[in-house]
């Protein structure tokens, strides 16, 4: 029932809007519920503008994939050591460390990003620190539409979604497995790469999925931290299209394309879970 209400129905509405029309008077989207009458113009337009190198969505499509891939990888780089520390070395303080780490994320995403604007602007704390330390002669334009600032924002915003599944998996690795490796003469490095890392693969995949998927639809981080044409993502075009009533179908078509794109990693994730379950039962 939950799936029917919150996914199947919502998905069908998106389809009906994508393949629907425009109310002639109100000029608002006029969903077409009858598949026999669907107009595929918006979807064709969208796909064409993604696949052609001079299409309006082409650049944003490539940038989105690039930004998400890099940001997800960096989330893993940042999140894995922390999750490992929590699971293996924090002892009775793990709850405290986890709470302290998650505390900033109790604040809304928008406010946290807005705070970063204050920190990164020309006369912000970061620039003053860099100049005070002699590391920069003039203010660094962090907010002048830099990809690096956008990636930083994405990593900062989504890293908890990487840490939590990693922590859950790392915490479940039996200490006896690690001890057995060491007893067999494996070095700590070898133990990590031959036991811990493979055992945590499911957490890595889960973290990457949970962390990366929302990034694909993110637009707010770009708007606040790097709002120029050179960093525009697909999410930005979705939001902008949805705000123009006659272009809502294009926005909905972009959502469908994004959804189709995301089905691949989701299917992979489900496959890994299924395989892990079979291995446990075997």
């Amino acid at each position: 029932m939950f799936l029917l209400l919150f996914f199947v129905f919502a998905f069908y509405v998106t389809l009906a809007v994508t393949f629907g029309g425009i109310d002639p008077i109100l000029q608002t989207p006029d969903p077409q519920w009858n598949p026999a009458r669907w107009d595929t113009g918006a979807l064709t337009y969208t796909i064409s503008n993604i696949t052609h190198s001079d299409g309006i969505y082409h650049g944003a499509f490539l940038r989105t994939i690039g930004y998400v891939a890099i940001s997800t990888f960096l989330c893993l780089v940042v999140g894995y050591p922390f999750a490992y520390f929590l699971a293996r070395h924090a002892g009775r303080w793990r709850g405290l460390f986890l709470a302290l780490f998650l505390a900033p994320f109790w604040i809304s995403y928008m406010l946290r990003m807005t705070a970063w604007i204050g920190l990164l602007e020309d006369d912000g704390l970061v620039n003053r620190a860099l100049q005070g330390l002699g590391l920069a002669g003039a203010p660094v334009g962090f907010l002048d539409g830099r990809s690096s600032t956008l990636i930083f924002g994405l990593v900062y915003g989504y890293v908890p979604f990487m840490i939590l599944p990693l922590f859950a998996v790392l915490d479940r690795i039996p200490a006896s497995s690690l001890e057995a490796a060491r007893d067999l003469g494996a070095s700590p490095r070898a133990t990590f790469f031959r036991v811990t890392l493979p055992a945590s693969r499911q957490g890595i995949v889960a973290g990457a999925i949970v962390c990366g998927l929302p990034m694909f639809g993110d637009y707010f981080t770009q708007q606040l931290l790097a709002d120029t044409n050179g960093t525009r993502m697909l999410g930005n075009f979705i939001v902008e299209s949805l705000q123009i009533p006659i272009f809502v179908a294009r926005g909905a078509a972009l959502i469908l394309v994004l959804l189709a794109l995301l089905v691949v990693p989701i299917v992979y994730y489900l496959w890994t879970i299924s395989r892990a379950s079979r291995e446990r039962l075997a």
Binding site: I22, Q27, D54, G55, I56, Y57, H58, G59, A60, N229, G230, R232, N236, F237, E240, S241, I244, I246, F247
Partner: peptide
């Protein structure tokens, strides 16, 4: 008119896309 508005909005999106 809606079709004219589409011209304006398309031009705007092309500016945003840098194409």
């Amino acid at each position: 008119a809606p079709d004219v508005e589409a011209l304006w909005e398309s031009a705007y999106q092309e500016i945003l896309a840098g194409v």
